[in-house]
C-alpha cells in the first residue's frame, strides 16, 4: 500500500481515537468526578445523576465505546484494504 494511503488511514484512525477518548473522559472524569455535585441535583429514580455515572453509567458507556470503535475500525480497514484475510 502507498505511503499516502497509509497516512490517510492512520489519520482517520487517530481522529476516531480522539473522539472516543473525549467521550471516555467526559463520562468518567467529567460526569463521575468533576461535575458530580452539579449532576447530583438531577434525580432519576433513586439515583443522583452524578452518582449514577460514577457507579453505573460510565461502565455502560465504556462498553458501547469499545464495540463502536471495533466496528468503525473494521469498516476503515476494508476501506483502505488493510484488513486481514
Amino acid at each position: 500500500m502507498s505511503t499516502q494511503a497509509q497516512q490517510a488511514y492512520w489519520k482517520e484512525n487517530l481522529r476516531l481515537l480522539a473522539i472516543s477518548l473525549v467521550i471516555w473522559f467526559i463520562v468518567s472524569y467529567g460526569f463521575g468526578i468533576l461535575l458530580v455535585d452539579q449532576l447530583n441535583q438531577i434525580k432519576i429514580a433513586g439515583f443522583g445523576l452524578g452518582f449514577w455515572f460514577a457507579q453505573q453509567g460510565s461502565i455502560y458507556v465504556f462498553l458501547i465505546l469499545i464495540f463502536y470503535y471495533a466496528w468503525r475500525m473494521n469498516k476503515l480497514d476494508r476501506k483502505y484494504d488493510v484488513h486481514e484475510d
Binding site: W24, S28, I33, V36, S58, I59, F62, I66, Y69
Partner: peptide, 19 residues
Amino acid sequence: YGGSVYLMGWTGGYVLLAL
C-alpha cells in the same frame, strides 16, 4: 461514593487497552 474510583478505574482501563 468514594468507592467509585475502583469501579471506573478497573473498567475504564479496558477502553485504553482496546483502543
